[in-house]
Amino acid sequence: MTAKNDVPAMPTIDIPLFPLDAVLFPGGEIALRIFEPRYLDMVRDCARDDSPFGVCLILDGTEVGAPATPAAVGTLARIVDFSTTPDGLLGIRAQGTQRFRLARSRVRDNGLAHGEVETWADEARVEMPVEFHLLATILERLLEKTGSVHAKASRERFDDAGWVGFRLAELLPLDNRERQKLLQTTDPLERLAQLMHTLPRFQSG
């Protein structure tokens, strides 16, 4: 019997890793400034091969310098746009796709971490239960206020428990450890329940 929170694992793949002080969710986007040679090489290779890299939250260490210790669960990212930042550096915009679990990692001679990862299948679509409709309403207001890329999402998106949960996890002022826990949660309704528990913290007055 498969446990409720088990996620079917897909084949293992080898990818470059980009540990960050941020959590990327499936369907989300992240903007990055690229200046270290190891990551310039990574972007070049990913662009050439149309291949993803892995975004993982840093558990120990920093984004710059010595390789950091990444969280075991991260998200595949695909580059969708390039730009030049105001300070003349390379900028990229990457979109989150599938989540993965890191099976093993190594550091190449250039300091770039690589990992063998087990990708997770996409979550099955689950309709928003009535008890979580408040979360969908809050998400609509946040998207309008922030001008997010998802601000013009179709109505049916707000009936998708997984999509609503991921978008709220991005937008609510949570700390990264909380976001990581939400990323690792494999039941969309459990994720919404966790988010409901955080709401009193953000109520004014």
Rank of each mutant, 00 (worst) to 15 (best):
M1H: 14
T2A: 09
A3R: 13
D6L: 09
V7L: 14
A9K: 15
T12P: 10
D14G: 11
D14C: 12
L17M: 11
V23I: 03
L24F: 11
G28Q: 00
E29P: 05
E29H: 14
A31Q: 15
L32W: 09
L32D: 01
P37M: 13
Y39I: 04
Y39H: 05
L40D: 00
D41T: 08
D41L: 07
M42F: 07
R44I: 01
R44S: 03
D45A: 15
A47M: 09
R48E: 08
D50M: 12
D50K: 15
P52E: 01
F53H: 14
F53S: 06
V55I: 15
I58S: 11
G61M: 04
G65P: 04
A68S: 15
T69Y: 08
P70G: 12
P70T: 04
A72P: 05
A72L: 13
V73G: 03
T75D: 05
T75M: 12
L76F: 10
L76K: 12
A77D: 04
D81R: 15
D81N: 15
T84L: 11
P86L: 09
P86K: 14
L90P: 03
L90F: 11
G91R: 04
A94I: 05
A94G: 03
Q98G: 07
Q98P: 03
R99A: 04
R101A: 12
L102V: 04
A103Q: 09
R104S: 14
R104K: 15
S105N: 07
R106C: 04
V107P: 01
V107E: 02
R108C: 06
N110A: 09
G111Q: 07
L112C: 10
L112E: 03
A113G: 07
H114Y: 10
V117G: 08
E118R: 14
T119S: 13
W120D: 00
A121P: 04
A121M: 09
R125A: 14
V126T: 13
V126F: 06
V126M: 08
P129Q: 08
V130C: 08
E131I: 12
E131M: 10
F132C: 08
L134R: 13
L135I: 01
L135N: 01
A136V: 01
I138F: 14
R141F: 04
R141M: 02
R141P: 01
L142T: 02
L142I: 10
L142A: 10
E144G: 10
K145D: 01
T146K: 11
G147E: 02
H150D: 02
A151H: 11
S154N: 11
R157P: 00
F158Q: 03
D159M: 12
D160P: 14
A161N: 02
A161T: 00
G162H: 15
G162N: 12
W163I: 01
R167K: 13
R167F: 00
A169T: 00
L171V: 04
L171Y: 06
L174T: 08
N176G: 03
E178C: 09
R179G: 00
Q180D: 02
L182D: 01
L183I: 08
Q184W: 06
T185N: 13
P188F: 11
R191C: 00
Q194W: 14
L195A: 03
L195G: 01
M196N: 05
H197T: 15
T198S: 12
T198G: 05
L199N: 04
Q203N: 10
G205Q: 12
